[in-house]
Nucleic acid binder design. Structure first.
Lengths: 135, 135, 135, 135
DNA sequence: GTGGTCTAGACCACG
DNA sequence: GTGGTCTAGACCACC
């Protein structure tokens, strides 16, 4: 089973980003293992009824990030785990989302304990091994 | 004093959103009270050296959110407090941002404790009384 | 002077890569400073007589790498230096080129001392502060 | 024994290039001598489980480089040693790869000593007698 | 005006 | 068949 990818075409988050994040997640949680093949650009494009370029853009990003490797003429594969990201690099990348969350909450007048409670509740639901797909 | 608004043109967050959030925050924290006047679109546009359309768009959003009320020919005013937000209403509104943050972090392979540390660090910097605007 | 970019359309290295590397280099050597504006996508596309998408692709990569920041409606700017890359990340990224060089040299029967001499000669010509453009 | 050739289908370097480089190396190091036969296109293709076109392309390149000679109807053979390469000729051939490596490193902000350390580490792993093929 | 996303379709290298 | 690059042109959000 070559990794199932689904997208919500109605969403405001770009299709190519949805693809990138699903693969990134699958690789991070171990659902996709090093060497696993991704669906071919054209195949996935047909399946999702989007333009092949959109998929190519997503795969290109995964390759540049080192999460996948492209073997021209053969396909795209999950790369050997390369110690993932450094702590600082990870922090930098989620910084924006954290900022947005705290800012929103404070703007709405949410008290500190309520923010923390919400955060802990969600964190406890997070799956660090297998899933994390929004149900 | 008709509510001081500042924007960072260097920031990557859209100017109109900066304006919206500052007013929203001021209303949420009590810095701006019901009935207080917002600066006129043209005045504020000149002061911030931005396009009047940008301010108009921000004010429009505030009106749609029920935070401000436009009184044609007179100006825009902070709306009567809609009983603030209920706990559930607040939770609903920040849910998306929380989701995004946790999702991003997990995708990048960040372990639970690291996510919590980042969150607490940022939370400790938050100002629950007066500011929260990115300096 | 908003950073001069030139490309060799005849080269086998993709145009968008040429653009990425020139900007990356300029940022690394200090020739382009944080906050400096890049030429607009459309402007540069006209100047280089290439499709705007090609430039957009290059800029997008720079943004994802954290070298530049896009401010929709305003333009693309060199980002504040974010501690650049970690040592390990840098090593990972040049690994391929190093491998290629050593492999080529060994294949051609070049003795160790000759490889080292060639390397040191080229390294001594490298400019770590201002230039590095292939003359 | 007609020269053993192995390829790593998992590698990101094209198969035909792996073949070219192995033969080139074998010729450079003396492992393959002038007049030695290369495996036939079809034999090798079957052995490596790759498309015959791929092997034909590799052999074609070797012939163009003067490393091998095709004798129609008989097969492909290692060419008479063209007095190996002169020092200058060797230098010219690896120049591009060296340039690429140094350029990349400098672009990424890698300091001189770090570049040298990386280079020396890799050089110490190089095998100047028999292998150099990526295992 | 700016950048961001997507579609459609082309050509090339690789297998 | 595979992915990689480029062109052309569209629509959107933002200023």
């Amino acid at each position: 089973m070559p990794l199932r990818i689904v997208v919500a075409t109605g969403s405001s988050v770009p299709i190519y980003r949805q693809v990138v994040e699903q693969v990134r997640l699958a690789a991070a949680t171990g659902r996709a293992k090093a060497g696993d093949a991704l669906p071919s650009v054209r195949t996935l494009a047909e399946e999702l009824v989007v333009n092949p370029n959109t998929i190519a853009k997503a795969y290109g990003e995964l390759v540049r990030e080192g999460i996948a490797e492209a073997q021209p003429g053969r396909g795209v594969f999950i790369a050997a785990k390369r110690s993932v990201y450094s702590r600082a690099e990870r922090a930098r990348r989620v910084e924006g989302a954290l900022e947005e969350f705290i800012h929103e909450a404070v703007c709405l007048g949410m008290p500190e304990e309520e923010i923390r409670a919400l955060f802990e509740k969600r964190l406890s639901r997070a799956d660090f091994k297998q899933g994390e797909d929004k149900p």
